[in-house]
Amino acid sequence: MEFYVGNTRVKVSFWFLWALTLFVLLDRSFIVLPLFGTILLHEGVHLLVLRLCGAKVCGCELHLYGVRLSCDLYTLSRVRRAAVYLSAPVCNLLIGGILYLYDPMIIFGVYNLVIGAYNLIPIPPLDGGNAARALGRSRAAKAACSLVSLLCLGAAFAGAIWLVWAYHNWTLLACALYLLAVLLKGGEEAL
């Protein structure tokens, strides 16, 4: 499915709609709305900061594995590119932190904390990895980023094993395996 919002082309893949429909139909706890709201907030902040930095956004594609924005990102300076990447996870962490302090049981706040922290992992195509790639051009910066990536991935696998053992929840393990595959492939920059 494809449509336009102003001059911006929005493309929604069949698999995104399939997964969203399946999730809505199977969701008995009504967590899909706060999760979808968190994702919309995250991508909306990226769009806002892109526009504020002067980048032209040509398209937005919603896939099973995430959202990809088509824009002239490389016309921006390295610092502005890093700001675009970091703006959304920082916004998620701020909103999540405020809501968590107000009431730790607000699921929208918990989702914002999780999405913000996850996206700061320094492995492209996550925002943290893309920001590190935009800012760190030296050999020492790349080595430090690789070390932090491996530590984060190790923590993700440890948490995933605990979640599978304690709650039979395979979500974090799937995410950690995906990140490992991306890291082994060399990562790709995405927004």
Rank of each mutant, 00 (worst) to 15 (best):
10 V>C: 04
148 V>S: 09
12 V>D: 07
15 W>V: 12
10 V>H: 02
5 V>D: 07
105 M>W: 12
184 L>F: 10
124 P>W: 03
68 R>V: 13
134 A>K: 02
183 L>M: 12
179 L>R: 11
2 E>I: 05
148 V>L: 15
22 L>I: 11
77 S>F: 05
73 L>E: 13
24 V>S: 08
95 I>E: 01
112 N>E: 06
2 E>L: 05
156 A>L: 15
73 L>P: 03
85 Y>R: 04
119 N>G: 02
82 A>Y: 07
94 L>N: 05
22 L>F: 14
73 L>I: 14
122 P>D: 05
13 S>H: 15
47 L>P: 00
157 F>W: 06
142 K>E: 13
26 L>H: 06
181 A>E: 12
184 L>D: 09
124 P>L: 02
66 G>A: 05
187 G>C: 11
143 A>P: 04
178 Y>R: 11
58 C>L: 14
3 F>V: 02
47 L>H: 01
150 L>W: 13
136 G>W: 09
29 S>V: 10
82 A>V: 06
142 K>D: 07
142 K>W: 07
129 G>E: 04
169 N>Y: 11
12 V>L: 10
28 R>Q: 14
9 R>A: 12
183 L>W: 14
3 F>G: 02
142 K>I: 06
46 H>V: 05
134 A>L: 00
145 C>H: 09
4 Y>H: 13
75 T>G: 14
133 R>V: 11
19 A>L: 15
100 Y>V: 02
16 F>I: 07
94 L>G: 04
81 R>S: 04
17 L>E: 10
57 V>K: 00
32 V>I: 14
118 Y>E: 08
41 L>D: 04
50 L>N: 01
127 D>M: 01
127 D>Y: 02
157 F>I: 05
191 L>N: 02
132 A>W: 09
32 V>L: 09
95 I>H: 01
29 S>P: 03
10 V>Y: 03
162 W>V: 10
88 A>N: 00
190 A>N: 09
175 C>L: 15
140 A>N: 12
162 W>S: 07
26 L>N: 12
11 K>F: 10
15 W>N: 11
54 G>V: 01
86 L>T: 03
50 L>E: 02
37 G>C: 07
133 R>T: 15
91 C>G: 06
64 L>T: 08
21 T>A: 14
4 Y>I: 03
124 P>S: 05
162 W>M: 06
43 E>M: 03
132 A>L: 08
114 V>C: 04
29 S>T: 13
163 L>T: 08
36 F>Q: 03
120 L>T: 06
122 P>I: 03
167 Y>D: 13
55 A>N: 00
34 P>I: 06
98 I>Q: 00
182 V>E: 15
75 T>P: 00
115 I>E: 03
93 L>P: 01
189 E>G: 09
78 R>W: 06
3 F>A: 01
189 E>W: 07
60 C>F: 11
77 S>D: 09
160 A>D: 09
129 G>W: 03
25 L>W: 10
140 A>C: 10
122 P>Q: 04
116 G>I: 08
181 A>R: 14
19 A>P: 08
8 T>W: 05
190 A>C: 05
2 E>Y: 03
58 C>Y: 12
72 D>F: 01
105 M>C: 10
19 A>Q: 12
29 S>Q: 13
40 L>K: 00
140 A>L: 15
92 N>H: 08
144 A>H: 04
159 G>W: 08
67 V>I: 11
118 Y>L: 15
168 H>E: 13
179 L>E: 11
1 M>V: 09
66 G>L: 05
